[in-house]
């Protein structure tokens, strides 16, 4: 459903992402792991069409993001880092706006908004303006906008970042509920998340993929089966390892 081929991004002389390729099929939850600044967000921003790649492309449900951006964007639900939303709008108004932009109207629009509110467990705050909500609810509001149109591909950039353990649990449950009929990419630097939701893991460091496999395969790389040590070995450069 999602094919990323040789995705590359240079910011001037900085090589943020270098030749990243992978595919995600329906039913998969791909964990995108890597230290801060590894190129996770940049890769996701290129897949979702926010920034143009220097080279390579991503094909979403048969639509090339660089050639047919609008058609490709229709198939994607995207939860950007820090879950931005229009803070002066109420939850319902915000989701209605997203629904309209996504091309729904009338009864269908209403149904989609209601569905997103229910799935994201936002009933109790739907009439509040987003600025009055806690971080967990804001995150879920942005999550609701990502799943409103029931996208085939769901891209989430650190969906549990900054949430308390209960809120993290809810977000993970929501991802699992969604997983069966979608291709999902979740970026994170929380290793426990990998076991909790992911069916496959890609570790990215210095803008390149350094590992690609199931959580079990990744674990097997360390004699004690500790993910944190595997992660450390994969992502630390020579110089950093000796500090």
């Amino acid at each position: 459903m999602l094919t990323v081929s040789n995705l590359t991004k240079n910011f001037g002389s900085i090589h943020a992402v270098q030749g990243v390729s992978f595919t995600v099929e329906k039913g998969e939850v791909l964990g995108f792991l890597g230290p801060n600044g590894a190129g996770k967000s940049t890769t996701m921003r290129m897949i979702t069409g926010f920034i143009p790649p220097t080279a390579g492309t991503a094909v979403i449900c048969g639509h090339d993001i660089t050639k047919e951006p609008v058609a490709a964007k229709r198939c994607i639900g995207y939860l950007p880092e820090n879950a931005p939303s229009y803070h002066t709008m109420t939850v319902t108004d915000f989701l209605t706006f997203i629904g309209k932009i996504r091309g729904f109207e009338g009864a269908e629009l209403k149904a989609k908004v209601e569905g997103a509110i229910a799935k994201s467990r936002l009933e109790s705050v739907r009439k509040q303006t987003i600025e009055t909500l806690s971080k967990g609810y804001r995150q879920r509001t942005c999550f609701a906008q990502a799943i409103l149109h029931d996208p085939q591909v769901l891209v989430m950039d650190e969906p549990t970042d900054g949430l308390d353990p209960n809120q993290k649990f809810v977000v993970r449950e929501m991802i699992k509920e969604m997983a069966a009929d979608k291709a999902i990419i979740v970026s994170t630097h929380i290793l426990e998340e990998v076991d909790a939701v992911c069916t496959r893991v890609i570790v990215i460091a210095g803008g390149q993929i350094v590992a690609n496999g199931t959580p079990a395969e990744l674990r097997a790389r360390d004699p004690q089966g500790r993910l944190d040590l595997v992660f450390r070995n994969l992502t630390l450069t020579e110089a950093q390892a000796h500090v």
Binding site: R45, T48, G49, F50, P69, V70, A71, K73, R74, I76, Y78, P80, E81, N82, P84, S85, Y86, H87, I98, I101, R102, G103, C142, Q145
Partner: peptide, 14 residues
């Protein structure tokens, strides 16, 4: 400033 530009430009609008 609020980051909503990332939301807006990844929606299916030109």
């Amino acid at each position: 400033r609020t980051g909503t530009i990332e939301l807006l430009l990844t929606l299916p609008v030109t």
